[in-house]
């Protein structure tokens, strides 16, 4: 589903954030992306979200070279992804419902369908009945789960998460991971960037280890 083919990313006038990264992730597979800060985790995720384009190599999603997408095609590509952010990026001036509904609204989904799917997504993350609350009135763990509901409400086949447990205590982190596991089991490709070593030890799955932009572990060549 996702394949990096000798991908390098060099920022203008700066260092090489990724060099020669090769790996593949299948549907229904879950992997951790680890490494020190600045190792290139965020850059790798940004390439997948087409917030950046690779300098060398190809990022293939479902066989499409997404680094070559024209600007007007990018929104339609992004609708296939679900993204969970470390700082959850909830819009504080709207209700939980409106936050979760956003990915459906941007694709012009029918209002009745939106309501049904938002309720289902909130129920899936254990926040049924939270629709009319404001994000700022929720705890950190609840906010992050709203972020996850938003990431999965449109049933993406790829779920990306950037430090999803960064600000959470171990118990909440484990809950979030259990959620990701459930999505993985339903066939979603899940890629979680984290430096939480404890968490990785608890969850038994593949680890892609980045060091100074190089993939040291878990890539195609091992």
């Amino acid at each position: 589903m996702i394949r990096f083919d000798t991908v390098s990313k060099r920022y203008v006038g700066g260092s090489e954030a990724l060099s020669g990264v090769d790996f593949a992730l299948a549907g229904g597979e879950m992997a951790f992306l680890t490494g020190h800060s600045g190792a290139g985790k965020s850059t790798l995720l940004k390439l997948l979200m087409v917030m950046e384009r690779p300098s060398i190599g190809a990022v293939l999603v479902n066989g499409h070279n997404v680094g070559r997408l024209a600007a007007r095609q990018i929104p339609y590509y992004r609708r296939q992804l679900g993204v969970v952010f470390q700082d959850h990026q909830l819009l504080t001036d709207r209700s939980v419902f409106d936050n979760v509904a956003l990915p459906l609204q941007v694709s012009g989904e029918r209002t009745s369908e939106v309501a049904k799917r938002v309720r289902a997504a909130l129920a899936a993350v254990g926040l049924a009945g939270y629709e009319s609350k404001r994000p700022l009135s929720l705890s950190g763990g609840e906010q992050q789960r709203v972020g996850i509901a938003r990431a999965v409400v449109h049933k993406p086949r790829i779920l990306l998460a950037d430090e999803p447990t960064g600000n959470l205590d171990p118990e909440l982190s484990a809950e979030i991971m259990a959620l990701f596991k459930r999505f993985q089991e339903s066939g979603v490709a899940v890629l979680v960037a984290t430096h939480d070593v404890e968490l990785i030890r608890q969850v038994n799955c593949r680890v892609l280890h980045l060091d100074h932009g190089r993939l040291l572990e878990g890539g195609i060549d091992g």
Partner: peptide, 28 residues
């Protein structure tokens, strides 16, 4: 500029044209 591929316009869910149009006006 690359050509727009029809399959890049993936809707998360199949909808009839009328429903899409209604959704569009509702959104406006």
């Amino acid at each position: 500029m690359a050509k727009a591929k029809s399959n890049s316009r993936r809707q998360p869910h199949r909808q009839s044209g009328g429903a899409l149009l209604r959704g569009y006006f509702a959104h406006h």
